[in-house]
Nucleic acid binder design. Sequence first.
DNA 1: TTTTTAGTTCTGTTGTAACAGAACTAAAAA
DNA 2: TTTTTAGTTCTGTTACAACAGAACTAAAAA
Lengths: 156, 156
Amino acid sequence: MRTIKLNSKQKELIEKMGVYMEKSGVSPAQARIMGLLLICDELELTFEEIYETLQISKSAASSALNTLLTSERIEYITRPGERKRYFRNRIGQWEDDFDKRFQHLLKVSQLMKEILEVRTKSTKDFNSKLQKAINFMEFLQGELPELHKKWKKLNK
Amino acid sequence: MRTIKLNSKQKELIEKMGVYMEKSGVSPAQARIMGLLLICDELELTFEEIYETLQISKSAASSALNTLLTSERIEYITRPGERKRYFRNRIGQWEDDFDKRFQHLLKVSQLMKEILEVRTKSTKDFNSKLQKAINFMEFLQGELPELHKKWKKLNK
DNA sequence: TTTTTAGTTCTGTTGTAACAGAACTAAAAA
DNA sequence: TTTTTAGTTCTGTTACAACAGAACTAAAAA
């Protein structure tokens, strides 16, 4: 038995975090794993610790962990002379996340531009509103990197 | 028959937009309706036009439209003396969307703060990284409204 | 008054996600 | 060499989303 001990507040927060993450599209098991890795005292948990603590099956843990790994929400380390993997939250990830959201915004604006090009020219009001939305996205594309720089400067 | 005519480029873009929107969690029918309302020449489509053009059943159209309405992704208008509704894209919505994303960010940072409070104090490096992520979110909470103002100023 | 319109609601089907549980496997330990 | 460990993979179950199709309904038109 390698169950991780959690107090009631921790359990509550894992559920809260779980509900929250499920809304953003991940499965319950994935959400709970994310929560566990963020909340429990130990930063690096083994496969066994994870499925025993969360009371999920090995198969559920296996597929959830692999999905979280490929979506880069968690990572693992190994220790010299040990076969098992230690899974942990990618706490450094949020800066990459910021960049990803940025890439996403870029794709949206490109698609919207493509759509605007194909649209009939007769719906002038609609098209100008669409253009405005595109403008705003492009404005953000200019400003967000600046913002990031500003923050970096504040933090060194 | 009230089918809306679409050229091949429009059809292609509706599918492209569909694939794109499905990734963000909406059903295929909802995604296609969104695409149709954004891409076709007519801005306001009736129930019949929608389900006939997209070749989906009335029930699928009904539930998709209602979901899109409650999630405020589309809206409808009526015309004097007419019973039917004209559905259209909420093109003015994107500024609200911006605010919603902002609210979301606020919730995330609050949850993260709550988690940090409960965490053991012994994982100093991890906690300081978490604190840094929180700081960045709070930094954004200060800066994003400023950005919005800046853009508004540029556009009046 | 009946018929059409503009949907909604009900029933049934299909596909798939999210698991559990058990069997399996490759490496390491005993 | 056998046994344990650290998972993976396979099979089966359950639940639910996403529809289609048909029946239904309330208002308006004919």
